[in-house]
């Protein structure tokens, strides 16, 4: 760790890994510190250009983290080239923030984790809080000196689930983080979102419905640990030692929930099924349940 953790927030102190979040104030005081790189990752590919935290670099989930041809993430060489271009070193502290309560920031953090980048944190409250607080933004794009980021092979075993893994996982806890309408099968896409293509609607049998946004407090940051425990343990029935798989439609909203379960609540074995409903809902002969109840295997 090159940059000290943010110990200013009593809320963070309650989390399993308090150091995974930083406050806007903490970040504002440290902008420009060597060894700290700020990354903006948004749903809207142009939002960064309208103004961003001074010195922040942009990483786009669609055009930079995904492979341009195969439905997969970049490989070790691609990731090394990307981070080298962005001026990020392997031992840098990376703080990621973005729009939509950090959906895409959490997604980027999860992809960084596939490559074992150790010190990667989220800005609590994301882009909206930084702007709401009237903090400085700029349209000036930094030109960081390229770094020689090592080629690290992506490790999909620990935190990523494929469709076959989910089939083998059936009977163990699954969290469906989509909207209630998508869960029940009334629709295949999020309300007000474009259709990315799923032929059937419903959910994976036994999955508990916990829409991702339940983890977000009214102030746009993450809810307190006690509130999160009530949602995921008391509500969804997760217990210590559980192996959990989270999914949504393309894996972005479930990255947000993955972050909550893994880093804020400390569940050790949590995987994100990034194929999610756009794969499951179009796959041949996989089990599907419709309606508001989880159903059985």
């Amino acid at each position: 760790m090159t940059i000290e953790l943010d110990s200013s927030s009593p809320k963070f102190a309650e989390y399993a890994e308090p150091g995974r979040l930083v406050t806007t104030q903490w970040l504002a005081e440290r902008l420009g510190t060597p060894g700290l790189v700020v990354v903006e990752s948004d749903e809207d590919v142009l939002l960064y250009e309208t103004g961003h935290i001074p010195g922040a670099v942009k990483i786009d989930w669609h055009t930079e983290l995904n492979d341009p041809v195969v439905r997969d993430y970049v490989d070790g060489e691609g990731f090394a080239a990307l981070l080298g271009r962005k001026g990020i070193s392997r031992d840098d502290t990376v703080v990621i923030y973005g729009d939509k309560n950090n959906w895409w920031a959490a997604y980027a953090l999860w992809v960084f984790s596939l490559f074992g980048h150790e010190d990667v944190r989220l800005l609590d409250g994301g882009r909206d809080r930084w702007i709401a607080e009237g903090r400085e933004t700029t349209r000036e794009t930094p030109a960081p000196a390229p770094t020689d980021y090592p080629v690290v092979e992506r490790d999909d075993t620990a935190i990523r689930a494929y469709k076959e893994d989910v089939l083998a996982h059936l009977g163990k806890p699954l969290i469906d983080v989509r909207s209630p309408e998508e869960y029940s099968g009334e629709r295949t896409t999020a309300p007000a979102y474009p259709d990315e293509g799923a032929l059937r609607a419903g959910h994976i049998p036994t999955a508990q419905s916990v829409p991702w946004g339940k983890a977000v407090a009214e102030d746009g940051g993450f809810k307190s640990r006690a509130e999160l425990e009530a949602i995921y343990r008391d509500g969804a029935g997760l217990k210590d030692g559980d192996e959990v798989v989270a999914y949504c439609r393309i894996g972005e909203r479930s990255s947000h929930t993955w972050f909550v379960l893994k880093h804020l609540l400390g569940f050790e074995n949590v995987r994100n099924y990034d194929g999610s409903w756009t794969e499951w809902g179009s796959a041949v002969r996989v089990p599907i349940v419709t309606g508001a109840e989880p159903g059985s295997v």
Binding site: L46, H62, T63, P194, E196
Partner: peptide, 14 residues
């Protein structure tokens, strides 16, 4: 299309 991704360009088509 390449800069914004095919999915996003679909929004303009709509």
């Amino acid at each position: 299309t390449k800069a914004v991704s095919p999915l996003r360009i679909g929004g303009m088509t709509g």
